[in-house]
Design a protein around this nucleic acid. Structure first.
Lengths: 225, 225
DNA sequence: GCGCCGCATGAAAATACTACTGGTCGAGGA
DNA sequence: TCCTCGACCAGTAGTATTTTCATGCGGCGC
C-alpha cells in the first residue's frame, strides 16, 4: 500500500510519514505541488494526501491535474480552514475526503483506510529499501537520493541492491563476487573496487551522510554514519 | 441517484430528506434499523446514510449487516459523538465516511457526493493513460500525441499499453516477452528491439520530451525525462 | 625514512548490448 | 491469384557498459 503525501511543512510531513510507516504503509513525501505532480506521474500510488496550501501548485490545483491524468486514485485533502466554501472547492476539484487541521493521526489513518479499502486486494507488496534519504525500489529497479532520480547501470544497481539488502553488515569481496558477479573463483581483479567507486560518485558525492564505507581488510558496509 | 437514510429523529430526517430532494436526489427514510435493513434488502441504493443511535439495530450493527450482504454500497455514518473510539468502530463496521452532529447540510451533501462519485468513476471505464502530451485511451485503444492521432498496429499498441501501465518502472525484456508476446521461453530474437524502434519513430520522433528510454542491461522505461 | 599492502580512481581496452535497415513469411482482402 | 500489410528475423553499425591497467595515496611495520 503506497501513499503519496504532498505537504510543505516538514514537521507535519515527518509526523505523518512515521505514523503511516509504523502501520506498514509505504509513504513518499513531496514538498511542493510541482514535485508532487511529477512523483505522481512517475509512480503509482494507492492514495494521495494533499495539503491545500502548497508552494507552486496548490492542493486544489494539484488534485484537478491528477484527476485529469487518472480518475481513480483516492485523494484526501488536508487544510487549516474549516469553511464550507473551502470544502466545496476541495470536493469540486475531485477530492474524496477532507480533513481539517489540527487532526489526530488516528483520524487520518481511519480515513485513509476507508479510502483505500476498496483497492486493498490489489495490494502488491512493493518493497522499497531505504537508508537516510536514499531509496531503492526493488520492483521498478529505480534509485533516488533526496528525491532525485539516480541512473545506475545493471551492475551498479545489482551491487547496490546487494549492499542494501545487507545494510549494516560488512560484506566481503568474496561474497560480492559470488552474489553480484556470480563467480565462485577468484578472478584476481579489482572490478569491485571500481564499481564501489562508481556508486560513491553517483550516490554519496555531494550528499550527507555518506552511506558507503570501507572496512579495510574485510570489505564494505552501508550505514548512515 | 438513490439514497437510503436511516434516522429515528423525525425532524432531522425530514430536514435531510428535503435537502437531498432539492438537489435532485431520490431519498427514502427508515426510522429504525430493522426497517432500514429490510428496505435495503428490497431495493438498491447508491448511498446509505445511517444514524448510529437507532432503535432495535444500531448503526454500527446495521452497517455490518449491510456489508455482509453487499460490500460495495457506500455508507456514511452520522453520530452525536465526536470520539475517536466511536469513529474507529464506525470504520471497522465498514463505513466509508463519518459525520459528527451537528453538521451543516452542505457538508453532508459534499460528502455524499464524494462517496457516490467514486462509484460512478469506478463504473465509468473512461480510463486514459497520459504522459506529457501523449494519451492512450484504454477503451478505444487509440493513441494521440500533441492532439495528433497516431496509428499503431496491434503489437505496437499492446507494447505501448504495457509500458504505460508500468510508467516509471524499468520493464525487462523477459517481462515484455511474457506480457505482450505471451511467451514464457526465450525466443532468441530481437522483436522487442524492433518494436521499440517502431514506437520511437511513431511517438517520439519530432517530439519533446522523449518518453521511451533504454536502460542498458535492464530493459526499457517510460518517463518524461 | 622506506617499502609494502590495501584501496581509490581515471582512462584505455575489451566486451556486451542495442538500434535500425532491409528483407522473408504468411494471413487476409480484393 | 495477387497484393498488402503486419509480424518477425538477420546482419551490421553504433553505443554503453564492463573490465583491465596504471598510478597515486595513506597507513603500518621495520
Amino acid at each position: 500500500m503506497k501513499i503519496l503525501l504532498v505537504e510543505d511543512e516538514p514537521k507535519l510531513a515527518s509526523f505523518i510519514q512515521k505514523g503511516f510507516q509504523n502501520e506498514g504503509y509505504e509513504l513518499e513525501v513531496a514538498f511542493d505541488g510541482q514535485m508532487g505532480l511529477s512523483l505522481f506521474r512517475q509512480n503509482s500510488y494507492d492514495l494521495l494526501v494533499l495539503d491545500v496550501n502548497l508552494p507552486h501548485i496548490n492542493g486544489f490545483e494539484l488534485c484537478r491535474l491528477v484527476r485529469a491524468d487518472n480518475a481513480h486514485v483516492p485523494v484526501l485533502m488536508l487544510t487549516a480552514l474549516d469553511s464550507l466554501e473551502d470544502k466545496t472547492l476541495g470536493f469540486e476539484a475531485g477530492a474524496d475526503d477532507y480533513l481539517v487541521k489540527p487532526f489526530k493521526f488516528q483520524e487520518l489513518l481511519l480515513r485513509a483506510r476507508a479510502l483505500t479499502k476498496r483497492n486493498a486486494d490489489a495490494s502488491a507488496v512493493k518493497r522499497t529499501l531505504r537508508m537516510a534519504d536514499l531509496e531503492l525500489n526493488l520492483e521498478s529497479k529505480t534509485v533516488t537520493r533526496a528525491g532525485q532520480r539516480i541512473d545506475l547501470t545493471a551492475k551498479e544497481y545489482s551491487l547496490l541492491e546487494h549492499l542494501l539488502l545487507n545494510r549494516g553488515k560488512i560484506v566481503s569481496r568474496v561474497d560480492i563476487t559470488e552474489k553480484v558477479w556470480e563467480l565462485d573463483f577468484d578472478t584476481n581483479t579489482n572490478v569491485i573496487d571500481v564499481y564501489i567507486s562508481h556508486l560513491r560518485r553517483k550516490l554519496d558525492k555531494g550528499h550527507e551522510p555518506k552511506l558507503i564505507h570501507t572496512v579495510v581488510g574485510m570489505g564494505y558496509v552501508m550505514r548512515e554514519g
